[in-house]
Amino acid sequence: MEQSGKLVVAGVSKTFRRDEKEIVALREVNFSVKEGRFISMIGPSGCGKSTLFNIIAGLLCPTTGQVLADGQDIVARPGTVGYMLQKDMLLPWRTILDNIILGMEIRGVRRAESVKRALPLMAQYGLKGFETQYPTALSGGMRQRAALLRTLLYDRDILLLDEPFGALDAQTRLHMQNWLLELWRDFQKTVLFVTHDIDEAIYLSDEIYVFSPRPGHIRAKIEVPIPRPRKPGDMTQAVFTELKHRLLDLLFSEAPIVGAAG
């Protein structure tokens, strides 16, 4: 495949060995993401999406293949991308401000500079007044806001978001989706987003990658033809409904997809 793009995943496979058995989690995953794009990944549970994220994040080594960011090999190089899991992972003994600046602290940024950068963003994105609160005082949505700001302030061009809104109720989830789109527009990051929610994938994304069951590979790459900026009413459009039906067919069809990415 073409070795260009902000992020390139080329021929990535991953096999685990457990109890003297081999489990093939990923098989020949290939894709290239242009700078500033919002990509969602959907697929059945256990298809290897989180394994792929751990490989891109440098936490796992692939059995075969390459991962490149800006043309540089990032295999086994943790910290090259920003990574947020479904659980907010806020440290309960740190205030919200201290949680948000944690990534900058790890990178060696002085506290005064970290606080100077964090406070305006907390005010701009709905966390003003919570600086000295602890995580237990915040709702699920507010905790996810803090976790997203922490990931953003880690200051990496590529963000991996692994089902960050999966545990939220529907109304809070929609608020968070709109908030994420605002952040993405303002900071122009390249985002890879794992979700099991097809509506969420369509609403947020420029492109959607559909994964097969394990061993996971990309069965199809689907462009989302809905113009930006987007609003909740877009979910009632015929093009949205048609795309949802197409994605459902891809997820539940076992036939090979002609022209699929991967």
Results as ranks from 00 to 15, higher is better:
residue 163 E to T: 13
residue 159 L to G: 09
residue 240 F to W: 10
residue 162 D to M: 11
residue 239 V to H: 02
residue 198 I to E: 11
residue 164 P to N: 06
residue 240 F to G: 02
residue 182 E to N: 13
residue 174 L to W: 04
residue 230 R to P: 00
residue 194 V to C: 04
residue 225 P to M: 06
residue 167 A to Q: 15
residue 237 Q to L: 14
residue 220 A to W: 03
residue 197 D to H: 01
residue 205 S to Y: 05
residue 168 L to H: 12
residue 198 I to K: 08
residue 190 T to N: 09
residue 167 A to F: 09
residue 192 L to T: 01
residue 199 D to R: 06
residue 225 P to Y: 00
residue 237 Q to G: 09
residue 142 M to P: 15
residue 221 K to F: 00
residue 219 R to N: 03
residue 232 P to K: 07
residue 144 Q to R: 12
residue 212 S to W: 05
residue 159 L to V: 13
residue 196 H to D: 07
residue 224 V to S: 07
residue 222 I to K: 03
residue 201 A to W: 03
residue 225 P to D: 10
residue 158 I to W: 01
residue 146 A to I: 05
residue 152 L to T: 01
residue 183 L to C: 02
residue 186 D to W: 08
residue 138 L to K: 09
residue 195 T to E: 04
residue 156 R to I: 08
residue 196 H to S: 03
residue 205 S to M: 07
residue 210 V to P: 07
residue 154 Y to N: 14
residue 148 L to N: 07
residue 154 Y to F: 15
residue 228 R to Q: 12
residue 142 M to L: 15
residue 169 D to L: 06
residue 238 A to D: 12
residue 200 E to L: 04
residue 206 D to H: 14
residue 151 T to S: 15
residue 177 Q to C: 07
residue 235 M to I: 06
residue 221 K to L: 12
residue 210 V to H: 09
residue 239 V to M: 05
residue 189 K to V: 03
residue 145 R to G: 11
residue 237 Q to A: 10
residue 142 M to F: 14
residue 183 L to D: 00
residue 236 T to C: 00
residue 185 R to D: 14
residue 147 A to T: 09
residue 176 M to T: 14
residue 150 R to Q: 12
residue 167 A to K: 13
residue 157 D to A: 15
residue 178 N to D: 14
residue 227 P to W: 07
residue 200 E to K: 06
residue 226 I to K: 00
residue 166 G to P: 11
residue 230 R to C: 06
residue 185 R to S: 13
residue 169 D to N: 08
residue 173 R to S: 10
residue 142 M to R: 10
residue 185 R to M: 04
residue 209 Y to L: 15
residue 195 T to I: 06
residue 228 R to S: 07
residue 157 D to Q: 15
residue 146 A to Y: 05
residue 237 Q to I: 00
residue 150 R to I: 03
residue 227 P to V: 05
residue 167 A to H: 13
residue 215 P to E: 13
residue 229 P to T: 00
residue 170 A to E: 15
residue 138 L to E: 11
residue 192 L to R: 00
residue 238 A to P: 06
residue 170 A to S: 14
residue 211 F to L: 12
residue 220 A to V: 07
residue 163 E to V: 12
residue 202 I to W: 05
residue 189 K to I: 04
residue 220 A to L: 02
residue 171 Q to P: 01
residue 228 R to A: 03
residue 187 F to E: 08
residue 194 V to N: 03
residue 192 L to Y: 00
residue 229 P to L: 03
residue 175 H to A: 10
